[in-house]
């Protein structure tokens, strides 16, 4: 079951297209990363989903089983979360909960529970104006899920944090993704890979592709054999002969190392290894590699 579906979503600011013809699907109980460089349209997409912006054209189709006011089942955390500095952390949670329709008792219980989960128990009764950036980010996450949303939208939730803050937030998200769908934007592939199962790649206001991270990793490039040998005449001769092994399609070679491309990795890997042993070649590296998702991301964005 899908939570929502975007069809041809576009948004203009004056004459510039912040987002054009974006179509994607948001399923249930998964973590989806909107990945792309700065200016790709990630924030615009999230603002459209959260209802802070109206699309210039295109439609958002919601799951018809859910309330027509999608703010009731959505939580949102902007890139720079803002709070009322004169409220305490606990008051912020209660106000957020009450505005989302919880009773005052529920809001207080939820607030307490989530502040504890966010590591803000001691700071609960201090004013938010005295919170550090990391504390504000965690408070932002906690208040965004106070009403147990089905969909949580996060704009660059970790990019402004130090490594420890980053780890804390990613751990919180990892715990939540079983209960709700999380859509987060990021320009760091590594962050996306850590918690997300799905990627929506964006560039210059367009959705380049959507898919499961694992599948994308598979599709990023066919595997190849990466071989490095200890230098020597014997080894160099051997490298020159790899091409003749049955099943090898291409060898990119250099001095004392090469990349072996093939369509039958399983059989070719055995043959190459056996031949190396037979000829007494001293191997330094013998591995099956793939073009990394990182390389693929960079290529896709630069294309």
């Amino acid at each position: 079951m899908n939570l929502l579906k975007a069809e041809g979503l576009s948004r203009k600011y004056g004459k510039t297209d912040a987002l054009s013809q974006a179509s994607f699907v948001i399923g249930e109980n998964r973590c989806i990363a909107l990945l792309g460089p700065n200016g790709a349209g990630k924030t615009t997409t999230l603002s459209l989903l959260a209802g802070l912006l109206d699309p210039t054209s295109g439609t958002l189709v919601m799951n018809s089983d859910l309330s027509s006011d999608r703010r009731r089942w959505m939580g949102f955390l902007p890139q720079h979360p803002a709070f009322f500095g004169w409220m305490t952390g606990f008051e912020t949670m209660v106000t957020a909960g009450r505005l989302c329709g919880l009773s005052s008792k529920e809001a207080a219980e939820r607030g307490k529970e989530l502040l504890e989960a966010a590591g803000l128990k001691e700071a609960a009764n201090r004013r938010v104006s005295g919170y550090s950036g990391g504390m504000k980010q965690r408070l932002g996450l906690a208040q965004a899920v106070v009403h147990r949303p089905r969909l949580l939208l996060l704009d660059e939730p970790v990019s402004a944090l130090d490594p420890i803050g980053r780890r804390d937030v990613l751990t919180m998200l990892d715990n939540w993704k079983r209960e709700m769908t999380i859509v987060l934007s990021t320009h760091v592939l590594h962050d996306a890979e850590q918690v997300c199962d799905e990627l929506i790649l964006m560039n210059r206001g367009r959705v380049m592709m959507q898919g499961e991270i694992e599948q994308l990793r598979q599709a990023a490039g066919a595997p190849y054999l990466n071989i490095v040998v200890e230098e020597g005449e014997k080894a160099n001769n051997w490298l020159g002969r790899i091409e003749r092994i049955q099943g090898v399609t291409k060898v990119d070679g250099g001095k004392s190392q090469c990349r072996v491309h093939t369509d039958e990795m399983d059989s070719v890997r055995d043959k190459v290894l056996r031949s190396a042993l037979d000829e007494g070649v001293k191997l330094l590296t013998f591995e099956v590699s793939r073009k990394s998702l990182e390389q693929w991301f960079v290529e896709a964005v630069q294309a």
Binding site: A50, F76, A82, F83, L99, C100
Partner: peptide
């Protein structure tokens, strides 16, 4: 300007 209006308006208000 400081974003608190968004904080309120993304909630069902």
């Amino acid at each position: 300007r400081n974003g608190t209006a968004d904080w309120i308006l993304v909630k069902p208000v």
